[in-house]
């Protein structure tokens, strides 16, 4: 009978059969799957070179079934630039967290976007340093308690959280800048579409694309996985609104088609 069954769901070819190191309830794994399914759907997994960053996603090179480089902390966009300039016909993407992209790597992401480098950036924003055990990030919400802001983030001392997508959207170059979330199935589907659009932008040579994805960190937020998803909706969405912040004219035409 088994021969008559129709598979309705399979592990994406672009994901390796490796158990991830992510904590229970973390949405990194889900975002990995969305990226992998996109590469498979586009039929570009073998043509893709990924660049991992430093932080929780440092091991992402073990999970994607394509060529992968591991960059120094914050430098993934520069490294991806070097790869793309050598192999302009390949799909090149970085996978970075908010500590990597919005703190130590701010210079690299801004200039890579300003050059309209034809790469795709998957930017996972959970508002905290996860890998090192829950320190304050530039994206940590005001008042939020972390191990390095034990009394809660004081914006008078440390400034207000950086909205990277809005900031990058002030640049003329980029093709596609969007923020999405994965706190419920409807938003997971919207995230999937945005990731597809970002990679399509690159495939069509339209230039820089980035999808910022609000993600949960139950362990370092001190919440259950379910409560952590709820915190994305109640805590993060008011500060980090979802939407498309930059869609170039060429990208608009692509999305219509």
């Amino acid at each position: 009978m088994i021969g008559n069954l129709i598979p309705v769901y399979e592990r994406p070819h672009a994901l390796t059969e490796t158990v991830t190191h992510y904590c229970p309830g973390c949405t990194h794994g889900l975002i990995h799957k969305l990226v992998a399914e996109t590469l498979d759907e586009m039929g570009v997994t073998e043509q893709t070179i990924g660049v991992a960053s430093v932080g929780c996603s440092v091991f992402s090179y073990n999970y994607f079934n394509c060529d992968f480089a591991s960059a120094a902390h914050g430098r993934a966009p520069a490294m991806a630039t070097g790869i793309k300039r050598v192999h302009p016909d390949r799909i090149v993407f970085t996978y970075q967290g908010d500590g990597d992209l919005a703190a130590i790597g701010t210079g690299e992401i801004i200039h890579t976007a300003a050059r309209n480098e034809n790469i795709t950036v998957i930017f996972v924003n959970n508002g905290i340093y996860g890998m090192t055990g829950g320190q304050m990030a530039p994206t940590t919400l005001p008042g939020m308690k972390t191990t390095s802001s034990p009394a809660g983030r004081d914006v008078k001392l440390t400034g207000a959280p950086i909205r990277m997508s809005e900031m990058l959207a002030t640049l003329d170059g980029p093709a596609f800048i969007a923020r999405r979330s994965v706190h419920n199935p409807a938003n997971v589907n919207r995230t999937r579409k945005a990731i597809r659009a970002a990679f399509e932008a690159q495939r069509q040579g339209l230039g820089f694309s980035i999808v910022e994805i609000l993600s949960s960190c139950p362990v370092n937020w001190g919440k259950t996985p379910v409560d952590a998803l709820k915190f994305i909706e109640d805590g993060m969405l008011p500060y980090y609104p979802l939407g498309d912040f930059k869609v170039s004219e060429a990208m608009k035409a692509l999305l219509r088609a």
Partner: peptide
């Protein structure tokens, strides 16, 4: 770091 990318 661009050189690093081009090298790999």
């Amino acid at each position: 770091n661009m050189v690093y990318g081009a090298a790999v």
